[in-house]
Amino acid sequence: MSSTRAVIVRAGLIRGWIEFRQTLTNGQDVFGYLLSPAIFLIVMVSLRGDKLPGTEISIGSSIMPGVLAITVLFSGVLGVAQLLAVEREDGTLLRAKAVPNGMGAYLFGKVVSVAGMTVVSLLIVLVPSLFLLDGFVFTAGSALVLAGVLVLGLAGTMALGAIAGSLMTSPRAAGILMIPMGLLAAISGIFAPLTRLAEWMQWIGQAFPMYWMGLGMRSALLPEETVVIEVGQSWRYPEMFLVLAVWAVVAVTFAPRVLRRMARRESGAAVAARQQKALQRIG
């Protein structure tokens, strides 16, 4: 039925927009979104005097694209996982289940609001960086690469977040996710070139989308000469888009199955039991 599909899209867009607006007008949320970019900016600005060996670019500037990549990763995976866990506990998902096509619109709305907040988070890093740091090169080609990396990266990370959020039993479990993601960031060439790591770590790093998002962002924003620090001294565009696309396709394929299984188990009693458990933890 085409009219129901239209409702899912329309309701999802409205949901996404309303939630996006709510986040932007909530002091606590805004503070949360500003905190880590502020820390990264301070670090990058303090490193703007030191040049990356063999190049004319400062270490601060060379880190910036990686910060964008890590922002996409955390915003996509953690953002979605945490929202799913919280909204399972407070009954938002059950509500979605109780209205026709509610689940579809709920998920589409989440995609819209999280994507919106990710773009805002990226701008919070990007815009001050362009004023405070120098050496960036931005062309029409860069914009295209940036958009491609962002779309594929977001699709993969949000779907992974949805899977993680479906498997978690409580919002507090989302904290545990930080550990593997932090480790992954450490071996993904975000803060130090991947070529400086042991070879086996390089292989692990390259198996995950994090590294390729960072590579894509660097290729789009840094001058051509900085390619010397990359693996094989190349931006490796075909591999970049292939790895990102494979991750996105696999995650997007599996996410609906895991979500459906989770949604099937949602009931009032399940929500009540989780709330009871949460209260006991507080008390």
């Binding site: 309701a11 409205i14 949901r15 709510q22 407070d90 209205v99 026709p100 509610g102 009032g268």
Partner: peptide, 20 residues
């Protein structure tokens, strides 16, 4: 018991859910 949509406004949520 339901605690969902705490940040939404009353009319906003009713109009939204009605849409479905």
């Amino acid at each position: 018991s339901w605690r969902d949509h705490g940040k939404w406004r009353v009319r906003e949520l009713l109009a939204h859910l009605g849409m479905y």
